[in-house]
Design a protein around this nucleic acid. Structure first.
Length: 481
RNA sequence: CGGGGCGUGGCGCAGUUGGUAGCGUGCCUGCUUUGGGAGCAGGAGGUCCCGAGUUCGAGUCUCGGUGCCCCGACCA
């Protein structure tokens, strides 16, 4: 019978796991904490890669590849970096049957191995900037894992850039976080807030960490991408200096930025429902499924279904026909809803007689009757655009409805259970830590968005919600993944 | 690393006071079906996580091990 998934209301966490597994996105592997990304899941990642890679190229970046193994001494060169990452690294001690003279870390991120190369490549300001990205896997030995959201090994891209001036590197950091925002909103249909992390939440070794923060359907926050201003920290650690135009020596200015397969988890939790995955059309390898109702003149129905599919594909709408007789139409409806195919066309003898077909939207589950004429492709294309837009609108409305400004700590404690809370913060790590300890909510982001997007005056001075001390700005607090 | 749970056909589970393993689903064959997870008939499929012990006899009891999942601390 049916593959039932837990409802979101019953158990959000179990719903997520059920969905990932029954939509065949990923599976547990025989290695603890590691997952198998199945074809349905990998197809989403490939769509993400294609779109992001194009955006990276358009902003002047090129791809390269650096080693998986990093000598222990490299990791150790930047003090904060090793402190942050050493505890969660896998370390290779043996190779070729012998103990290694120097241990090799399986990369948790590649700043150090890349900067050891950059040092060799950079002598003069003429060698700058370097704008390299790499698509790779990384390993972080997590204590507790969740499919896509946090696994021991995951796939990502990491951009690593080198610049002659702090202004240039700052510009790069902001440019790339905006690329991520554009991707999240235009492709994933997931609204995000750009801003900075507090010192306690930033990347180990960074001067500043910028992020995009999204809200999931359970109102928890999820960090979907980061862009780090590394200042001269790594250049100094690797003694990477260059000669400036006026003949002086200076350390190189750096950035790094990345998004990972975690985005797939974000996508799921942003849009999907109790029937399964809901995919924005722009990330769907297959946008339309055509299900012929095989009765009466089966051959004629089948032939028409394939003809429609060809027409759609010719018009740039990837579609396919499921004309197998193994499963009933009802089974197919449920199965492709589970898999998140954005649009379904039902076609039976009755429709063919009437010159119509039934079109069902995955996002709203609405069914409408469309004429089978040469306007079909255009209409379908319009509906797909409408789905893309509706998913974004719906998610943004949800976030707005679950974002609250508060002026007292008691109010804070109440509202932080219901979504994002905007409140004045005195800027100290002590206050941040206390609030986390008492409420489990953290500062997700210090927004760098215009107030009309935030819908609140973020930069007006006031009084800290917790300490009562003067506060220069407001922060977004939430419980997070 | 602490707390909890679970290891039994592919998947989900049941298995009583210990007596030689069953149900649902899936799979295979055939026929009938097909507009929201079809019906009937027949069939294949199991080192009951591993090891030791108790016993005439262990899926079941005892001890030890091991794996995974969930919750928390840590993290993208």
């Amino acid at each position: 019978m049916a593959e039932k998934i837990t409802t979101r209301n019953a158990d959000y966490s179990q719903w997520y796991i059920d969905l990932v597994r029954s939509a065949k996105l990923a599976d547990y592997s025989d290695v603890r904490g590691c997952m198998v990304i199945r074809p349905n899941g990998y197809a989403i990642w490939e769509k993400m890669q294609t779109a992001l890679d194009r955006m990276f190229k358009e902003t002047g970046h090129v791809n390269a590849y650096f080693p998986l193994f990093i000598p222990e001494s490299f990791i150790a060169k930047e003090a904060e970096h090793i402190e942050g990452f050493a505890p969660e690294c896998a370390v290779v001690t043996h190779g070729g049957g012998e103990e290694l003279a120097e241990k090799l870390y399986v990369r948790p991120t590649s700043e150090t191995i890349i900067w050891s190369s950059y040092k060799k490549w950079i002598q003069s300001y003429r060698d700058l900037p370097i704008l390299i990205n790499q698509w790779a896997n990384v390993v972080r030995w997590e204590m507790r894992t969740r499919l896509f959201l946090r696994t021991t090994e995951f796939l990502w891209q990491e951009g690593h850039t080198a610049h002659a001036t702090p202004e240039e590197s700052q510009e790069e950091v902001v440019r790339m976080i905006n690329v991520y925002k554009t991707f999240a909103e235009n492709y994933m249909a997931m609204p995000v807030i750009i801003g900075k992390k507090t010192d306690s939440e930033k990347f180990a070794g960074a001067v500043d960490t910028w992020c995009i923060e999204a809200m999931m359907q359970d109102t928890k926050a999820l960090q979907a991408g980061t862009s780090h201003n590394l200042g001269q920290n790594f250049a100094k650690a690797f003694d990477c200096q260059f000669q400036t135009k006026d003949g002086k020596l200076d350390y190189v200015w750096a950035t790094s930025w990345g998004v990972s397969t975690r985005l797939i988890g974000a996508l799921i939790m942003a849009h999907s429902d109790d029937r399964g995955l809901v995919l924005p059309p722009k990330l769907a390898t297959r946008q339309v499924v055509i299900i012929p109702i095989l009765k009466g003149d089966k051959a004629a129905v089948c032939e028409k279904a394939h003809a429609i599919s060809r027409t759609l594909s010719d018009n740039g709408i990837p579609s396919f026909v499921d004309d197998s007789e193994q499963n009933s139409p009802g089974w197919k409806f449920a199965e492709y809803e589970l898999q998140g195919i954005p649009l379904r066309i039902e076609l039976g003898p009755r429709d063919i007689q009437n010159g119509t077909c039934i079109v069902a939207r995955r996002d709203t589950l609405e069914k409408t009757e469309l004429a089978l004429d040469d306007t079909l492709s255009v209409t379908i294309s319009e509906i797909l655009n409408a789905i893309q837009q509706n998913l974004f609108d719906r998610a943004l409305e949800f976030r707005n409805e679950h974002t609250f400004e508060v002026t007292s700590y008691s109010e804070f404690r109440e509202m932080v259970e219901k979504g994002f809370v905007i409140a004045h913060w005195d800027g100290t790590a002590e206050t941040e830590a206390k609030i986390k300890e008492e409420t489990k909510a953290t500062i997700r982001v210090l927004p760098e968005e215009p107030d009309y997007i935030m819908r609140y005056a973020m930069h007006e001075a006031g009084t800290c919600i917790y300490s009562g001390k003067p506060a220069q700005q407001k922060a977004v607090f939430a419980k997070a993944y």
